[in-house]
Amino acid sequence: MSATRWQQAAPALGVLLIVALAALLQFAIRADWVDGYTVPLPSEVLASLPRLFVEEHVLARFAMTAGETFAAATMALVAGLAFGIVLYRWPRLRAAFEPWVAVLAAAPLVLAYPLFLVLFGRGPLTIVVIGFASALAPVILKTVEGFAAIRQVLLQVGRSMRLSPAQEFSLILVPAALPHIFTGLRLALVFALINVVGVEFLINLGGLGQLIGELSERYDLPGTWAAIGLVVLVSVLFFVVLDAGERRLGRRR
């Protein structure tokens, strides 16, 4: 009985552990065990949070990063679904191009960001294009996998009812592949977010990613740590919401 109660309390204890570690760090810096110039006091990091909202326009930056992420992810989802369905419908095309899509998915595309800078200029367009390019291949692969995993029985039912190809698509293929399509959406958003924030930081332009670079160049260490914490928090919340959405979709079926 008490064992299960421990289990239930575990997540809360995890949070407590992180708070305790922060307190320990605070003590270590105060006691001069850790150099306070390279690692700022956790209390100062917390205190710099309001400043980020008032002076650094975190909310506007957040809106910008979110906008770029959604633009890139939406484009990747639409294009990825289209390509994925084409590859599913024509097995020859799938045999020919799927390996290339897999290579594209495994290639560290973000490394080519200087190339994208030359192609699209140093602006939000480049950031969105890199986010889109990184998310596209995983969405295509997931879509093909999702449609290919549809049970043959469902297709046979459709055929025995003499559905037209359009009816088969909208009444059978899409509903059956819906969970996989949602997984594709999640992948698109995750890849887009990682690459958008990373490139914002790397080319020093735009939303939350740039804020971190800017604060560190101003040698504002508490601000830098607070901004990093904020970005991590935003991404974690983002993943939690996506996971919850996916689980809900899974339960409804």
């Binding site: 690692v39 990682i194 924030v197 971190i212 260490l221 990093i228 991590v232 991404s235």
Partner: peptide, 16 residues
Amino acid sequence: YLGPTPKIILFPVLIM
């Protein structure tokens, strides 16, 4: 949840 966050943003802190 920390796994998929963009790690490169830690770079300024790591430089310090």
